[in-house]
């Protein structure tokens, strides 16, 4: 497991992100944001929808590059890295849990969970065993062969987390993890995040759900409004 906790220091320095630059529909989602995130903790980006939380998560996880500014991981500037290295980061260092789950329809739960391991070239049996173990951990053992589109919201969210964990990443990025879940399921998911934290992983989530903040899991809150950090 990750354990050692010293890796995964994330710093954002004067980061801006502008979409459709130079076009009439140009808009700036993130404006000169600077903050840092300690490794091994649970950090929440809080703000109303449209405030730029999701874009920030994407910038942190290397899904997109900043228009200006720097994103550093353990002191290394990742915003200027070639595509190949960003891919490597997304594969090995970060695990993503998307708001819409983003499971691939038509594939089984097991296949979906194993997907991020394919480019690593790890032995199939090993990956499969780990995927089944993760599914068992999340009470999904009986659903391994079910098609992704047959799942309930709570199941889909847990499958998405299992998928994010298949390559054993140091940092879990979760976008509005409770958005589609009722309170019971939301608490279940947050408990899972607490476990991940206990394993020494960083958890970075975006949310504006009070339940998340009342749960007592979040150690640090970054307030976002209109693409800027307010607290």
């Amino acid at each position: 497991m990750v354990g050692r906790g010293v890796f995964g220091m994330i710093e954002l320095v004067q980061v801006s992100k502008t979409f459709n630059a130079g076009q009439p529909n140009e808009y700036t989602a993130v404006r000169e944001v600077s903050f840092s995130i300690e490794p091994g903790r649970v950090t929440a980006l809080r703000g109303p929808s449209g405030s730029g939380k999701t874009t920030l998560l994407g910038l942190i996880g290397g899904l997109t590059r900043p228009s200006s500014g720097r994103v550093r991981l353990d002191g290394r500037d990742i915003s200027a890295l070639p595509e190949r290295f960003l891919t490597e980061l997304r594969r090995a260092t970060f695990g993503f849990v998307f708001q819409q789950f983003q499971l691939i329809r038509g594939l089984s739960v097991l296949e979906n969970v194993m997907l991020p391991a394919t480019p690593t070239g790890r032995p199939y049996t090993e990956v499969r065993a780990r995927a089944l173990q993760l599914l068992a951990d999340f009470d999904l053992a009986g659903r391994a062969e079910a098609k992704a589109q047959w799942l309930s919201g709570g199941e889909a969210q847990r499958v998405a987390i299992a998928r994010a964990l298949i390559n054993d990443p140091k940092v879990i990025l979760a976008d509005e993890p409770t958005a589609h879940l009722d309170s019971v399921l939301s608490r279940q998911i947050l408990a899972i995040f607490a476990d991940l934290r206990a394993q020494g992983r960083s958890v970075i989530l975006s949310s504006h759900d009070p339940l998340v903040f009342e749960f007592g899991l979040v150690e640090r809150v970054v307030e976002i409004r209109d693409g800027q950090v307010t607290a």
Binding site: Y124, R128, E145
Partner: peptide, 9 residues
């Protein structure tokens, strides 16, 4: 339809 199925594509 069990997870025993281990046939790879």
């Amino acid at each position: 339809m069990t997870s025993q199925r281990n046939r790879r594509g």
